[in-house]
């Protein structure tokens, strides 16, 4: 990849920058603070649009999340609506679909994590072993490309390819004498369809971050290993894979943090009344009950439950990673 060699100097440059500015920072006394703020007043103007955006479109909705504990009546507004405590939460927990939603959400997440997490690592290690040249570049260009296909077109492709009568996949399995499978209308296939269409679309793209990490491996390590008679496989196992561990840990933490926030835009498109029993996840449920049925408070409560679980998972996994002495987010 053409950009790889350029990246290492960047890292070094940044470290230099950090090292030279740190002592300066310590020298500055608090009494300079006011002067520095006044001197750089334009920077506050620079950051103003972003601050306004995050306050309006992110922090006001966080304030608005209180409707989860209220009975939201549009004419009374968020502030004026009466409090009902945890009523919406209990209603959700006691509903017959609660465990189905949890099961589907976790099922799809863990399934995609189990399949989708190792594959980019394997492909990146494999690409890293290939000689630079036309073939390697082609593999990269082609495998990155599905990343840019929109989720609607992707869902359209899945539906078209999996049609039991006219779909490509069923034509292919027909060659092996297997009867057509109604992938989209049989609930037991939904999760597999979701996970493997994701693998097709994103595995190539997922290699980039690992390839960047592999480009940072000191070539001397490999040279020394070769002198010691290590095989390619041994060098991958003892040098390359350990070099990827910090990246893996960070990505794993981020993935766990969004375990309940599955790719809901695609699920919503692939969902139909026939596969609903295995395709309905918390996020699609929130969409249906909140936006379509206008049960704002109830849907907000379900959404808040989801967000809280996500936050807890993220913190717990990050804490575990930190304790183990590995990489962590904070």
């Amino acid at each position: 990849m053409a950009t790889e060699p350029e990246m290492r100097p960047h890292v070094e440059m940044e470290m230099v920058a950090v090292n030279t500015t740190k002592p300066l920072k310590k020298k500055k006394k608090p009494r300079n603070l006011k002067r520095r703020i006044v001197q750089h007043w334009e920077l506050y103007l620079f950051i103003l649009p972003a601050v306004l955006y995050f306050v309006i479109f992110h922090y006001i909705p966080m304030y608005g999340v209180q409707i989860a504990f209220k009975d939201f009546i549009p004419s009374l507004g968020i502030w004026g609506s009466p409090w009902v405590g945890f009523e919406h939460f209990t209603r959700f927990f006691e509903s017959y679909y609660f465990w189905d939603l949890i099961k589907n959400t976790l099922g799809i997440s863990l399934y995609s994590l189990a399949v989708g997490f190792p594959l980019p690592i394997i492909l990146a290690l494999s690409l890293n072993e290939a000689k630079d040249g036309f073939f390697k570049r082609s593999v990269q260009t082609v495998t990155y490309s599905p990343h840019f296909i929109s989720v609607v077109v992707m869902a359209g492709m899945v539906i078209a390819f999996l049609s039991p009568t006219t779909g490509l996949i069923n034509h292919i399995i027909g060659l092996f004498g297997i009867d057509p499978i109604p992938f989209m209308s049989d609930p037991k296939w939904f999760k597999t369809v979701y996970v493997f269409s994701d693998v097709w679309q994103n595995t190539g793209w997922g290699t980039i971050i690992y390839l960047a990490a592999l480009a940072g491996v000191d070539p001397q390590l490999h040279e020394a290993a070769i002198v010691d008679g290590a095989s390619r496989w041994q060098r991958i196992w003892h040098i390359n894979i350990p070099a990827l561990v910090p990246t893996m840990v960070i990505l794993l933490i981020l993935n766990t943090g969004s375990l309940l926030a599955v790719g809901f835009e695609k699920i919503l498109l692939l969902q139909n009344s026939l596969n609903m029993e295995s395709s309905d996840v918390i996020a699609t449920f929130v969409y249906r009950s909140g936006i379509l049925d206008a049960q704002y408070s109830f849907a907000a409560a379900v959404g808040l439950f989801n967000a809280v679980i996500n936050a807890i998972l993220l913190i717990v996994v990050n804490q575990i990673a930190k304790k183990r002495g590995g990489a962590s987010l904070w």
């Binding site: 006001i60 909705p61 409707i67 929130v286 704002y296 907000a300 959404g303 989801n306």
Partner: peptide
């Protein structure tokens, strides 16, 4: 984040 519904209402 506040989530889908509070953002929608906003």
């Amino acid at each position: 984040s506040g989530g889908l519904i509070p953002t929608y209402l906003l």
